[in-house]
Design a protein around this nucleic acid. Structure first.
Lengths: 128, 128
DNA sequence: CCAATTATAGATATTATAAATCTATTATAT
DNA sequence: ATATAATAGATTTATAATATCTATAATTGG
């Protein structure tokens, strides 16, 4: 019952990017990799998912790198979690006790509270 | 990012026991195993943890089995989760950004909301 | 005491998933 | 053309959850 390390890496990478955003410069994965002490290949693989989700952009080649999208301030922590881990169910009921299963319902409710907290946290909140 | 199957099994076993509690009879793992379609050995291993946590009692030997403790109505879903999975942190920050790390803080807050929801759900609520 | 029943413990095996690496490929700037 | 940088796919490694197996201890009833 854990968030993935990949999500951790992604969030820290994003915070780093935000702090350097004044420069409006593309940041190569090498920089991020150095800052976070995570291998370039793996971090790149992680960030590619954030690119796919359109929260950052990427450009290949010399002077390329990753850059925040304009709308980054509206991106929530939950958005990043989903971009990395996909939509997860915290609880997979092994038994088919149908819709009215109270155990399922209780877990769902807890999960909803977890998610809504993360939806209300924006990347901006992590950096101000 | 999931609760364990073991927790699922434990909760369903407990609900089953509660439904049969009128009899005040010891329920052998064999019965539970049949009801849930989980192997006796594994289920037993799971339930032993609930015994250790003192939410049910067990007696070995013929006519033995598991029985709810008197205080079962006050046991929360979170109590069971902890009895099975231990106290978990939903998020393990790989970086030591100290106490004031906002990412860590955001995840913690979300986790707290998850936990408090489960603390407020009692086994009783799963069965009434 | 004996036989049957039942929980527990410890070791081990199995499976699943996350984490990470490696190699090759594609794109871009100079 | 060359150096730089992201991406993709295959593969490996690590870790944890799930499950089984075997042996042991406790209890009941004859």
């Amino acid at each position: 019952m854990k968030f993935s390390k990949a999500t951790d890496y992604a969030l820290h990478a994003l915070v780093y990017m935000i702090h350097r955003d004044g420069e409006r410069t593309k940041i190569p994965v090498q920089d991020l990799s150095l800052a976070l002490n995570v291998s370039t290949t793996y971090l790149s693989k992680v960030l590619t998912r954030i690119v796919k989700a359109n929260y950052i952009s990427s450009t290949s080649g010399a002077k390329g790198g990753y850059r925040l999208q304009q709308n980054w301030e509206n991106v929530s922590v939950y958005d990043i979690v989903v971009a990395i881990d996909g939509v997860q169910t915290l609880f997979e009921d092994s038994f088919d006790h149908g819709e009215e299963c109270r155990i399922q319902a209780a877990m769902m409710e807890a999960q909803e509270n977890l998610i809504s907290t993360l939806k209300n946290k924006r990347l901006k909140d992590l950096t101000v």
